Amino acid sequence: MKKLTVLKSLMIAIIAFLGFSLTSCNDDKYELIPLTLSDVNGSYRARLVTSQGGNFNEKIIEFKAKDSIITFNDFPVNEIVKSVVKDPVKANAAIASLGKIEYKLNYTSKLNTEQNVVELTFDAKVLNLQIPVDGTVKNTVIRLVTKQKGFFVGYDWSMRFALEADKIMVDGVELTPYEVIKYEIPISIKN
């Protein structure tokens, strides 16, 4: 009986010791690293969420930010092409023939030291595509807009922003009916 009592007392002492040794110190505070506007420059790997109507698509993309320009070397145009070309087989053939589409997004930056972020105000330009369908080319102009600011966050050195393709013109005629295509980058990590 005494052995059992001693064993229980020893186990309680070990558990108490482990509990105290695993307790974190209260000194674990985030050290603020002040940002500069040039911290935005660099290469990023991002999670892109594309949505149109009730359809969502998620993929990993890469882009670069330098001198107030974000450059996408492979801008996602699948939803745009499928909005213009309704036949899925022809749309996939057109997407394959287009290859990689480069898009440059201009921005101005403003430092917000209070929140340790760089605020990004975008000046989106139109995207022009020559979509091949049945031996002809559909001249397509996509108006891309940004409805809110983007942010480069000093806490985790990530960038967050969103774009919308709110209007498509095909051979000078507005595409109707058309559902807006949203491109959201909720997080992108600087490489």
Rank of each mutant, 00 (worst) to 15 (best):
K190Q: 15
I131W: 02
E184D: 15
P88C: 08
N139R: 00
T146R: 09
S158L: 05
E164L: 11
I12E: 05
P76L: 06
V153K: 14
K167R: 11
I70N: 02
N112V: 04
L175I: 08
S158K: 06
N112K: 08
V85L: 02
M169N: 12
D156P: 05
V133G: 02
F17I: 14
T23A: 09
E114D: 15
T146F: 00
M1F: 11
S68A: 10
Q130E: 15
E164N: 12
Y30W: 11
K125I: 03
N41T: 02
I142F: 04
F20R: 00
L10E: 09
I80L: 02
G150F: 08
T5F: 14
F161P: 06
A96M: 08
P186R: 07
F63Q: 01
P186H: 12
F122Q: 04
G54D: 15
T36S: 11
K190V: 03
S109D: 08
L111K: 04
V126A: 07
Y107L: 09
T108L: 03
C25E: 14
M11G: 06
S21Y: 15
L129T: 02
V77S: 01
V141Q: 14
D27A: 10
L98E: 06
Q52S: 09
T140H: 00
V81E: 02
F122I: 01
K64C: 04
D166Y: 10
I95H: 00
S38I: 09
I189G: 01
I80S: 03
M1N: 12
F56H: 08
M169V: 14
S97I: 03
S68V: 03
L163Y: 02
V145W: 07
L111D: 01
Y155D: 08
P76W: 04
S83D: 05
C25W: 10
A13W: 00
F56Y: 13
E79Y: 15
L105Q: 06
L127R: 01
L10C: 07
V81A: 00
P88N: 09
F20P: 01
G154D: 10
I95C: 07
M11F: 14
L18S: 08
I181K: 02
N57D: 14
Y178A: 05
Q148E: 15
R160W: 05
D166N: 15
F151E: 07
R47K: 13
V77Q: 03
L98Q: 05
T71R: 09
K138E: 05
V137Y: 10
D171Y: 02
R45C: 05
A93Y: 04
Y107K: 00
T113Y: 04
V81D: 00
I189A: 07
D166V: 12
N106A: 15
K29E: 07
E119W: 06
I33T: 11
G54M: 15
K64V: 13
N139T: 11
M1Y: 12
V126T: 13
V118C: 04
F152L: 06
G135Q: 02
Q130R: 09
I187W: 11
P186C: 11
Y155T: 10
M1R: 07
V137H: 04
Y44P: 01
N55A: 13
I142H: 01
F63W: 03
L175F: 01
I14R: 00
I185R: 06
P186V: 08
